[in-house]
């Protein structure tokens, strides 16, 4: 027993050493939300640290919805989101007297992929994708030749993100027309790497996920172009950022709490840094930057929001 106490005491002493860094005057910025936006914000936070090491930026991954819950209670300064805020989430924020601004920070394309051995599909129309994924397809659309008679009479194996993910919400909204409405008989995983494994090991597989996951696995997968009404377009940095890869490219957002802007000048600093540095950092994490004009627009939007609230304070 005495030994155990000794061990505890020693480890506590060890812990208390090497922790005197944080005694300096520091301010902190709390961020939470989407795990899709997380890599972007993490990259910015990492670089911001060399800019201003006294600011502690912390980032959680509660998901877009979980993040908005905390944001609406005023527990976080900034919320990452892979979809715009919903009405009921907005209401909760209003009830707690939280004013906020929505800023677009990047684009993400959703890639539709098949196995490299699949030599019959080059392009899906949105109608075809809808026919495959809509709720009514469950149990009825089971073979490739049901979508196009020229395609093989083989079972189609579907892979997609789980229902809790913002990617799923976005895909169903863009393709089926209603967010969250999809067939249920497909292999679902919150981990996109599992989907990559699935499609790359199955000749008759078909899946969708973030473009970054395709780019890292180009040798194992084949991307399929999507025809949103104006011809077949393959997703790429170019087509995602100019919007021609429709409807499967989406903006990623961050939301900033107004009282954080009033109480903590570092939040303003951080967001300016975010919008300035995003274009150069996004490539590292596999997302597509907005166009320079769009960034300028977001910066102006943010600037006037900051001015409005700093004036209110005086």
């Amino acid at each position: 027993m005495r030994k155990l106490l000794l061990i505890t005491a020693v480890s506590l002493t060890v812990l208390s050493c090497g922790n005197n860094k944080k005694d300096k005057e520091t301010s902190s910025i709390n961020i939470d939300g989407s795990s899709t936006v997380y890599p972007v914000t993490e990259a910015i936070a990492e670089e911001y640290r060399s800019e201003d090491p006294d600011v502690d930026v912390t980032i959680g991954v509660s998901g877009t919805g979980g993040g908005f819950k905390k944001f609406g209670r005023g527990e976080t300064d900034i919320s990452n989101a892979s979809r715009p805020i919903k009405e009921d989430e907005k209401k909760i924020a209003e009830q707690n007297n939280i004013d906020f601004i929505e800023l677009e920070v990047a684009y993400d394309g959703l890639a539709v992929v098949v196995n490299p051995e699949n030599d019959w599909v080059d392009c899906f129309t949105v109608e075809q994708l809808k026919k495959i994924w809509e709720p009514g397809a469950q149990g009825t659309i089971t073979h490739w030749n049901q979508i196009n008679p020229e395609w093989p009479n083989e079972e189609i194996h579907l892979f997609g993100p789980g229902v809790a993910s913002g990617t799923f919400d976005y895909f169903t909204e863009a393709i089926v027309g209603e967010s969250g409405s999809s067939r249920g008989d497909y292999t679902a995983s919150e981990d996109d790497n599992v989907l990559v494994q699935g499609v790359s090991g199955d000749k008759y597989g078909l899946g969708f996920f973030g473009l970054a996951y395709y780019e890292e696995n180009e040798d194992k997968l084949r991307m399929v172009a999507v025809d949103g009404g104006e011809g077949c377009v393959e997703p790429s940095t170019q087509t995602v950022s100019d919007g021609s890869y429709a409807p499967l490219s989406r903006p990623l957002f961050v939301y900033v709490n107004s009282s954080s802007i009033q109480n903590n000048p570092k939040v303003v600093d951080f967001m300016n840094f975010y919008l300035n540095e995003a274009p150069s950092l996004l490539k590292d994490v596999g997302y597509v930057p907005l166009t320079p004009e769009e960034y300028k627009e977001q910066k102006e939007k943010f600037k006037s929001f900051v001015e409005k609230h700093q004036n209110n304070q005086k």
Partner: peptide, 20 residues
């Protein structure tokens, strides 16, 4: 720990029991 709000990105080691 994820449920109680442990974070994914923390640039500092905790220095007190009240730290994130």
């Amino acid at each position: 720990l994820i449920v109680i709000g442990a974070l994914a990105y923390v640039p500092f080691a905790p220095s007190s029991p009240m730290d994130e």
